[in-house]
Simulated assay, not measured.
Amino acid sequence: MFSREHIEVKTLDQIRAMRVAGLVVAEGLAAMGEAAKPGVTTAEIEAVGREVLARHGATSNFLGYGADWGLPPYPGVACISVNEVVVHGIAGEREVHEGDIVSVDYGAIVDGWHGDAARTFAVGQIDADSRQLIDVTSESMWAGIAQIAAGHRIGDVSHAVEQSILSHGRSYGIIRDYTGHGIGTAMHQPPDVPNYGRAHRGAKIVPGMCLCVEPMVTLGGDEVEELDDGWTVVTVDSTRAAHWENTIAVLPDGLWVLTEPDGGRAQLAALGVPYGGLE
């Protein structure tokens, strides 16, 4: 299952199993996005994700994460990050309000296989800068996904994410401290997939690899700090951040975006990328 670079390479049947987890993630994210209404708390949003996991008999790859490394065990099944919170926001009594943006990072385990994805949602009507931030971040994720192909290298993905963000007419902060990653029998595996870098560098992409492309972008600088809870990461300059992520499988005939309901078929077609889904 592992290559000489210690990157987990899956069989087609194993990727089919990962798709089951990916669909649970897609459903949970959609439900939490619907729940992100003015006046609700982040705990109420996270509870929706718990219900989706329970209904499908799935377990959370977030709940308790970190305990094996001496970190405070993560207490939720989803990271709910509002406005200036970049990632790892812990659900609680914070209310979301009209005009806020809410990033939800969420995962599931089914039969030992992991899915992981993130979305940033608007709460009601949001300002133009926040809307563009969400769109720029999503677009950069898809630009990176479009570079995932057998024979390409991880640096091609990273470079595409960075160049997509830089191509817009303003300066955005590209978070460097947190990256995408491999995924499979664990949520975080080699290789790291940074959101910046040089093309033609890094591990070679081969069929059977599964990767998470995960840009985090801010309206200001790229400096972040971790709060005293040991998890919540915020922008140092208090500007807003957006976060997008998908789990992607590399198949012999193309890509399968395991955490998109349609397998990524529509977006991949728009980008001219072959769809390789097994359904």
Rank of each mutant, 00 (worst) to 15 (best):
1 M>T: 02
2 F>V: 05
5 E>M: 06
9 V>T: 09
10 K>P: 00
13 D>K: 12
13 D>V: 07
16 R>S: 05
22 G>Y: 02
22 G>N: 01
22 G>E: 00
23 L>F: 03
29 L>I: 06
31 A>R: 15
32 M>D: 01
33 G>S: 10
35 A>F: 06
35 A>V: 05
35 A>R: 15
36 A>R: 06
41 T>K: 08
43 A>D: 10
47 A>M: 13
53 L>Q: 06
57 G>M: 12
58 A>V: 06
64 G>V: 06
67 A>P: 03
70 G>H: 13
70 G>N: 13
75 P>N: 09
75 P>I: 09
76 G>L: 10
77 V>E: 14
77 V>I: 13
81 S>M: 10
83 N>M: 15
85 V>Q: 04
86 V>Y: 01
87 V>I: 15
87 V>C: 04
87 V>S: 06
87 V>N: 05
88 H>P: 04
92 G>R: 11
92 G>C: 11
93 E>P: 09
94 R>H: 06
105 D>K: 11
108 A>C: 10
112 G>T: 02
112 G>C: 07
117 A>L: 05
118 A>Y: 07
119 R>L: 14
121 F>V: 04
121 F>P: 02
123 V>M: 04
123 V>E: 08
128 A>V: 12
131 R>D: 11
134 I>F: 05
135 D>P: 01
135 D>W: 14
136 V>W: 06
136 V>G: 11
139 E>M: 10
143 A>Q: 08
146 A>G: 11
148 I>A: 00
148 I>W: 01
151 G>D: 07
152 H>A: 12
152 H>W: 05
155 G>M: 04
156 D>L: 07
165 I>P: 03
166 L>T: 11
167 S>M: 08
172 Y>E: 02
175 I>S: 01
177 D>Q: 13
179 T>C: 07
181 H>F: 13
196 Y>A: 12
197 G>A: 00
198 R>D: 11
198 R>H: 03
198 R>N: 05
202 G>R: 00
205 I>L: 13
206 V>A: 05
211 L>F: 04
218 T>F: 09
222 D>L: 09
223 E>M: 13
224 V>A: 07
228 D>T: 14
230 G>A: 10
230 G>P: 06
230 G>T: 04
233 V>K: 01
234 V>W: 01
234 V>M: 04
242 A>R: 01
242 A>D: 02
247 T>F: 03
248 I>H: 00
249 A>N: 01
249 A>G: 08
254 G>S: 03
257 V>H: 01
257 V>P: 01
264 G>W: 03
264 G>L: 07
267 Q>P: 00
272 G>E: 08
272 G>V: 12
272 G>T: 12
273 V>I: 02
274 P>C: 09
276 G>P: 03
277 G>C: 05
277 G>W: 02
